[in-house]
Design a protein around this nucleic acid. Structure first.
Lengths: 201, 201
DNA sequence: GTAGCTTTGCTAACGCTGTTACAAAAAATA
DNA sequence: TATTTTTTGTAACAGCGTTAGCAAAGCTAC
């Protein structure tokens, strides 16, 4: 069956062609402006050909999503190499995660659904001030007098917000409501506790 | 000038009509399927009328974004009422944040750009296993023998991931690269430190 | 009350998008 | 060479954001 063999090989080649062109597009223009039609144009095939390889547009994005997680896992594993102290491993992985996110910006966006229209401007929204004030004031009040030098309130505000936003986002991946059998609640408590401890002592 | 007065009033009414219809749509169908044309249809006006009130589609979403932050700030302030202990305030705000996110799901999505096509399925991606294993194994190794009962590795894995994802997301709101003058790096270190402390002691 | 001007609103189009039914062309089989 | 299978392209459907140009209504002044 060498004929069907070649056919499979050729079909695979087109599949790779599609993925390459799509990825090129995601990297240069962002996933928002990636379209089936543009991919078809780039690989010099007609549009329906793409639908013989992928069920729909989302299936192509899903492919990148999975690859993103594979890459991230690799980065984390690599970061651990040569470090047998678990605390050092966790430290290394955290930095690896951070570096992955920013040096693979497009992957990270796809993996966690960042990059909405309003997202870019979210930082400039004046309404955020009230939010920041509410948190910052309590953090400053919490800081013991003898630690005012070593605790930066703005830094702690960022930590606080980041932790909460991460927690919420992760829990929203999948389900809109928070019926997760109390686990999320325990994580929340755990995170708050760590945060407060980090300031007072 | 009672005529132009009425005109302004009527124009404002249409504006409210637009926002109400748009929000109704976002709540019932999600922001992904909200469209100018459907709003025009709902309020029984033609499409260009909407463009006399809002510059474009994003401007309408931005409106909700801002309102979302106003609501969130209110929630946080309200949570602090009657609590003069700063640690209790922070605890209350964290829970208020959490509750806001899940009882105002659509606002939270808009505010932080959640809800990409691939987002719903992100939890089901098998490639995530490698990622989880890399982290969990180090956490288990870090846990002292006498604390194995009180430290749930899965819970800590969720905390770790949440913190990092939050940190990255917040820093990506605005800029793709991480040239933030070292502040983000300090927050990262701060968060890792708190996390490790929370496990070993 | 009518003429002219201003404001408002609608129709219809442009150029996109994802997706698919159907026909043509090419390739493999008989 | 004729037939069948596979592959590919054309063209359409239904939707989207956005805008140019025109008709209608409302207001002002005579």
């Amino acid at each position: 069956m060498s004929i069907t063999d070649r056919r499979l090989r050729q079909k695979e080649e087109v599949r790779v062609l599609i993925l390459d062109a799509a990825w090129e597009m995601v990297v240069t223009e962002g996933w928002q402006s990636f379209s089936i039609r543009k991919v078809a144009d780039a690989i010099e095939y007609s549009v329906p050909v793409i639908y013989t390889h992928f069920e729909n547009k989302d299936a192509i994005l899903l492919e990148f999503n999975r690859k993103g997680f594979r890459l991230l896992a690799e980065c984390l594993e690599e970061a651990k190499i040569g470090k047998d102290n678990p605390a050092a491993q966790i430290d290394a992985m955290a930095h690896a995660y951070w570096n992955f996110a920013f040096s693979n910006y497009q992957y990270y966006q796809l993996m966690f659904g960042l990059g909405m229209p309003t997202c870019e401007t979210a930082r400039k929204i004046p309404e955020m001030a009230g939010f920041k004030d509410a948190i910052s004031s309590s953090i400053e009040a919490l800081t013991p007098a003898d630690r005012k030098d070593s605790v930066d309130p703005f830094l702690k505000y960022q930590s606080f917000w980041s932790m909460l936003h991460g927690l919420v986002s992760i829990n929203m991946l999948g389900k809109p409501d928070n019926q997760h059998g109390g686990l999320a609640e325990m994580v929340l408590k755990d995170v708050i506790c760590s945060f407060i401890k980090g300031i007072v002592s």
